[in-house]
Design a binder for these strands. Structure first.
Lengths: 331, 331
DNA sequence: ACAATTAGCTTAATCGATTAAAGCAAATTT
DNA sequence: AAATTTGCTTTAATCGATTAAGCTAATTGT
């Protein structure tokens, strides 16, 4: 391992103090009132020796690590993977490094991850919180650590967040379905107290006040079985003409179930999905879905967090989503 | 922000030196030869004050950050997202934190990421290297930084790695196709000098020596157009009865193209894919594919890297994959 | 001409933990 | 009784950068 060049090496070589070198290289010449020639010389030698500042020493002194913690439900879920990718790219632009964790929708796991990340002294958090994790979020806030929630938030927790306009998106999307002539809708969502889930449900209810519809909620932990039995009920008892799925996992799992049970979409039953999935491209007919602005969500969350790390102000952002009714054209 | 508790606070409270506290809390009692009572007292007060050691100070002193850098082609690609998830989980068990980067298959981006991560003083790397990135890998090695390649490696670069037995997997899989009666095969791979790609091609060639077959290579950067035209050629000119795809991106993109062009699988043409994808579940007939042991690859890479961080020895590991010929049963 | 300012640079403390070396009793050996 | 060992603990240097405070000589003001 080659020995690292430190401020001291530069200082020694030129014959000045490390203080001067620090002033110049951290861009505080005026503050240190460094002479022009000396400054030039320092910069030159620094380049010559290929000086790389030691992040860790800097962190120890300044208390800032320039690292942020991103915690999502599951990084192997394409939705969150896309968020992670965009957060990673965006935070890089600000000189921030991102460490990632998956909560598996468990408040306990979230708490553990948060503790690990705090020990690592992250400067801020971007979190897509699981159900019943208010305490941990409030704990972070109480420590004065900047945080920006993403995709989900708690109405009664005072924090920054970036979310989609879930209620309006859902309402518009379902209205579109009604406009197509469907009259007996089923809505499948997770059993959750999270605001985004409640909003999506409300959007569905607002849009379906004049027709027959049913809302089904399934538990995240037993979703496989419950989804299957729910769809059975919808097909055999409710005899709905379209199903609205509230999330991307539900959408994909639902489509899979329908496909494997030879239910033709949209002939036998139509669907309305939330979030984009690659699998939509494998249907001959377009899968109507609400496309959240994932990249924008991620980028804005980084920006909001970054601002919050400098100044002390919260920001809430609600972004519009897009209703996709046609298959992308294959060029 | 609540003031952090340091060694000093504990020392002060008890009336001992910070050295003693450090010895006890870092588990070096014997080394410091600390008295039993004192040690107990220190532990007690540490718990009382909820002492959390300062990672950064420790890193500065020890030169170890307990952080590893994971660089894959694209974290939003499900294959790499799964790897990332498993690496994250596994490294957590060793007390390591993972920072992730996406190279987008570009050697320049890789180099930049590596530089950023080195500045961050990661203790080691797990990298799925893009084509033509030998230099950067060798650079890391020359710095004495532990590294374990994953999924891909360079035959002529002396490093640790964990890969699948690409040649054998492919050979077995293609033989299976032949056993099913297919006699005119097409192989679609990326144009790449990476060993795993060459191995997969060799596996294909070894298996098809007795029948008619064609190998097509497309460029990663123009894959969309080239894949389309290649499949056209396969369908219209070669008139192959089955296509073998060399990677998961090719598999999914190929299936998508075939589906959208109403090519029935397996009636009109069968396929053999590499890696699992969620989209396979949307076909009525099973999609034959080679399933790499993703989790195991990831776990082993962490273990190998961890060992390498302690002792100075390289390790190469080749794992077996599984040939999937049936659809998973939906319970 | 003499005080006040300013430009240019250094000193030294600090962040928090680690660890070799040294100190000092008490206990043991010679 | 002197010498050595053992047990327990402290001292102090160190990792590398930051930054308030201090110092000196040159410059400016009146």
């Amino acid at each position: 391992m080659v020995k690292k060049v430190s401020l001291k090496d530069i200082a020694l070589k030129i014959g000045v103090s490390t203080a001067l070198v620090s002033y110049v290289l951290s861009g505080n010449e005026e503050k240190g009132r460094v002479g022009k020639e000396t400054a030039e010389k320092i910069r030159q030698v620094a380049k010559e020796l290929n000086y790389q500042p030691n992040h860790i020493a800097k962190s120890l002194k300044t208390g800032k690590t320039n690292t942020i913690g991103l915690i999502v439900a599951d990084i192997s879920n394409p939705f969150f993977a896309s968020i992670a990718r965009a957060v990673e790219d965006e935070s890089g632009k600000y000189g921030l490094t991102t460490i990632i964790g998956s909560s598996d929708e468990s408040p306990e796991k979230l708490k553990n991850l948060v503790e690990v990340f705090i020990k690592r002294q992250v400067d801020g958090f971007i979190i897509s919180p699981p159900d019943h994790s208010e305490e941990t979020i409030e704990y972070i806030i109480s420590l004065g650590i900047p945080i920006c929630l993403i995709d989900r938030h708690f109405d009664h927790v005072k924090s920054s967040y970036v979310v989609t306009d879930n209620k309006e998106s859902m309402q518009k999307a379902v209205s579109h379905l009604l406009g197509m002539g469907y009259k007996n809708l089923a809505f499948i969502a997770y059993n959750s107290t999270l605001q985004h889930m409640k909003d999506r449900e409300q959007g569905f209810l607002d849009a379906t006040s004049e027709i027959y519809s049913q809302v089904y909620k399934i538990n995240f932990s037993k979703q496989h079985d419950e989804l299957a039995s729910t769809i059975e009920v919808i097909l055999n008892e409710q005899k709905a003409d379209a199903i609205v799925f509230a999330t991307n996992t539900l959408s994909v799992a639902g489509l899979k179930y329908l496909t494997q049970h030879k239910v033709k979409i949209p002939q036998d039953l139509n669907v309305m999905c939330f979030d984009f999935s690659e699998v939509y491209d494998f249907f001959y007919h377009p899968i109507i879905h609400v496309k959240q602005p994932i990249e924008q969500l991620a980028k804005e969350s980084v920006t909001i967090l970054f601002n919050q790390m400098k100044e002390e102000h919260l920001q809430q952002l609600v972004l519009n989503s897009e209703l996709i009714t046609k298959t992308r054209v294959m060029v």
